[in-house]
Amino acid sequence: MTDAYSDSRGLQPAAFWGGVLSMALCVALLIASEFMPVSLLTPMARGLGATEGMTGQAISISGIFAVVASLLLSTLAGRIDRKRVLIMLTAAMLVSLVMVAMAESFAMLMLARALLGICVGGFWALATSVIMRLVPRADVPRALALMYGGQAIAAAFAAPLGSYLGDIVGWRGVFWALVPLVVVNLAWHLIALPALPARGGEGFGRMLNVARRPHFARGLVAVMLSWGAAFTMFTYLRPYLEQVTRADVTTLSTLLLVIGVAGFVGTWAAGRVLDGNVAPLLKLPALVMGGATLGLWLIGAAPVLVALLLFIWGAMNTAMSVIFMTWMSQNVDDAPEQGGSLMVAAIQASILLGAVIGGSLLDGWSIHATLAGSVVLSAAAVLLIGNGRRLLKP
């Protein structure tokens, strides 16, 4: 078996691009599995004899378990080869999909979604550290962009395809359709990923030490503000488009597709623009996405302008992941698993928090208040990051 070997900095001089592509496929399948139920909420609720609200809560439970898994995985996995861990997580995703497809009760759906949350949190906690070992240091931004291309594919096509296929084969058929793709991904992992032996000192105490580093702690706050701002708006984009833009079903689907397609542009651009100096780019996601959200607030009734702003927002949304994960790979390169775990926990927590903040503003005031809340969080992120130098390691 080919072994991923390291240089003195813990980075690998050889390149395993087949492994990177396997990781990208896994990302696409994880995102599709996590968010596919959004487009199938009503038929799933009917099929399980539950309310739509109950089914929605079952879907969101994956986020809670993702936070827990991201914090605990590097400790619980101990000295297990990381290739084996990725294979186990992908196998667990397969089991989760089968459980959802066969679910006859709300409780079974909850259990399946909790298992998927463990897969999501565990995978993302390891993803950046694995990419750092699959390609040379100079190729890490491009490899991260390639991996996040899987996210862009799923974001663009999972929801519309799920809705379309659900009408043809039923919601259970949609989940069964994902099963053979995950089987292919498992086989690809086995073939393309090299051995990735665990490194020493992977305990929870080391994670706390990483979190105490001033530059990284500031970075985590910047991450939470940036993602929190994004999901304060994005979670409630549909009511905004329905109430303000007055979008019908066709226009709504088109505008959502615009965001997904823009994701390809964002990952492609980020992989080519990023170089050794990531500091000046750290504030761009909050600055650009906050500006786009402010534009939506001011020009919400013009569909063409809304489409342009959503394209800009969608491109920067996927670029944000590449930018911050590149920052993490360069500034916590001595403890990438611990840094990745903390990053994933911060992102997942901020997504949940953003949804709560946005929903409270929507229910208490209006959809315009939700957008205003997103803009305020974006401004706070820009002010904290500044020129980005305080987020770099000494």
Rank of each mutant, 00 (worst) to 15 (best):
residue 4 A to T: 09
residue 8 S to C: 07
residue 11 L to W: 03
residue 14 A to T: 15
residue 15 A to K: 08
residue 16 F to N: 02
residue 17 W to Y: 11
residue 21 L to F: 11
residue 24 A to I: 10
residue 26 C to N: 12
residue 26 C to E: 05
residue 32 A to H: 02
residue 34 E to Y: 06
residue 35 F to G: 04
residue 38 V to P: 01
residue 38 V to C: 05
residue 43 P to N: 12
residue 46 R to W: 08
residue 47 G to L: 05
residue 47 G to K: 06
residue 50 A to C: 10
residue 59 I to H: 05
residue 62 S to C: 10
residue 73 L to H: 06
residue 74 S to P: 05
residue 74 S to I: 06
residue 74 S to K: 07
residue 77 A to I: 02
residue 83 K to L: 09
residue 88 M to A: 15
residue 91 A to S: 14
residue 92 A to P: 07
residue 97 L to I: 07
residue 102 M to Q: 15
residue 103 A to R: 01
residue 105 S to C: 08
residue 107 A to F: 09
residue 112 A to N: 04
residue 116 L to S: 02
residue 120 V to F: 15
residue 120 V to D: 01
residue 122 G to F: 04
residue 123 F to Q: 02
residue 124 W to K: 03
residue 135 V to P: 01
residue 138 A to L: 08
residue 142 R to G: 00
residue 142 R to K: 11
residue 142 R to N: 06
residue 143 A to W: 01
residue 153 I to W: 06
residue 155 A to P: 10
residue 158 A to P: 03
residue 159 A to I: 04
residue 160 P to A: 13
residue 164 Y to L: 15
residue 166 G to K: 00
residue 168 I to E: 09
residue 170 G to V: 12
residue 170 G to P: 11
residue 175 F to Q: 04
residue 176 W to D: 08
residue 182 V to D: 06
residue 182 V to E: 07
residue 182 V to L: 06
residue 184 V to S: 10
residue 185 N to S: 15
residue 189 H to L: 13
residue 190 L to V: 15
residue 192 A to T: 03
residue 193 L to Y: 02
residue 195 A to M: 12
residue 196 L to A: 12
residue 198 A to N: 09
residue 199 R to W: 08
residue 205 G to S: 10
residue 209 N to V: 11
residue 210 V to T: 09
residue 211 A to C: 11
residue 216 F to E: 01
residue 217 A to P: 05
residue 219 G to Y: 03
residue 220 L to P: 03
residue 226 S to L: 14
residue 237 L to N: 05
residue 238 R to P: 02
residue 243 Q to K: 06
residue 244 V to G: 02
residue 244 V to D: 00
residue 244 V to S: 01
residue 246 R to F: 11
residue 249 V to Q: 02
residue 249 V to D: 10
residue 253 S to M: 13
residue 254 T to G: 10
residue 258 V to T: 13
residue 259 I to M: 15
residue 265 V to R: 00
residue 265 V to D: 02
residue 267 T to A: 13
residue 268 W to D: 09
residue 270 A to H: 07
residue 270 A to Q: 10
residue 272 R to A: 14
residue 273 V to Q: 03
residue 275 D to W: 12
residue 278 V to T: 12
residue 280 P to S: 12
residue 286 A to T: 04
residue 296 L to V: 11
residue 297 W to K: 03
residue 299 I to M: 05
residue 300 G to A: 06
residue 300 G to C: 05
residue 304 V to G: 08
residue 309 L to R: 00
residue 311 F to H: 11
residue 312 I to G: 00
residue 315 A to E: 01
residue 320 M to Y: 10
residue 324 F to E: 00
residue 326 T to F: 07
residue 331 N to E: 13
residue 332 V to M: 12
residue 346 A to L: 04
residue 346 A to N: 05
residue 348 Q to D: 07
residue 349 A to H: 03
residue 351 I to H: 03
residue 353 L to S: 11
residue 360 S to F: 09
residue 362 L to F: 14
residue 364 G to C: 12
residue 366 S to M: 09
residue 367 I to R: 00
residue 370 T to L: 05
residue 373 G to K: 00
residue 388 G to D: 04
residue 390 R to S: 14
residue 391 L to W: 00
residue 393 K to V: 09
residue 394 P to F: 06
